[in-house]
């Protein structure tokens, strides 16, 4: 599984760090999300899927 954040859509809602704190970090500059990795470790897949579902901006991109 691969994960990314579409910076054109992300506005810093912050739901991803609630559901997947090990997978995302919010920027100190504008509060927008950045993934901590591109290849999702197996034990993070569920959390990343929940973050994907919880993003009101549909800014999280998941492949696989």
């Amino acid at each position: 599984m691969k994960v990314g954040v579409d910076r054109r859509r992300c506005v810093g809602q912050g739901m991803c760090v609630l559901y997947a704190p090990q997978a995302f970090v919010l920027s100190d500059e504008d509060g927008c999300a950045e993934p901590r990795f591109e290849d999702v470790p197996t034990d993070q897949e569920d959390a990343v899927r929940r973050a994907f579902d919880a993003c009101p901006e549909q800014a999280i991109v998941v492949i696989g």
Binding site: V11, Q13, G14, M15, Y19, R50, D53, A54, C55, P56
Partner: peptide
């Protein structure tokens, strides 16, 4: 809830700037 994509802080570019303070 397995996920909670609520809009209490709005949506789009005007997302509540103080959301982290509120939380």
């Amino acid at each position: 809830r397995s996920s909670n994509r609520h809009l209490a802080f709005g949506s789009g570019i005007h997302r509540c700037i103080g959301s982290s303070f509120a939380r």
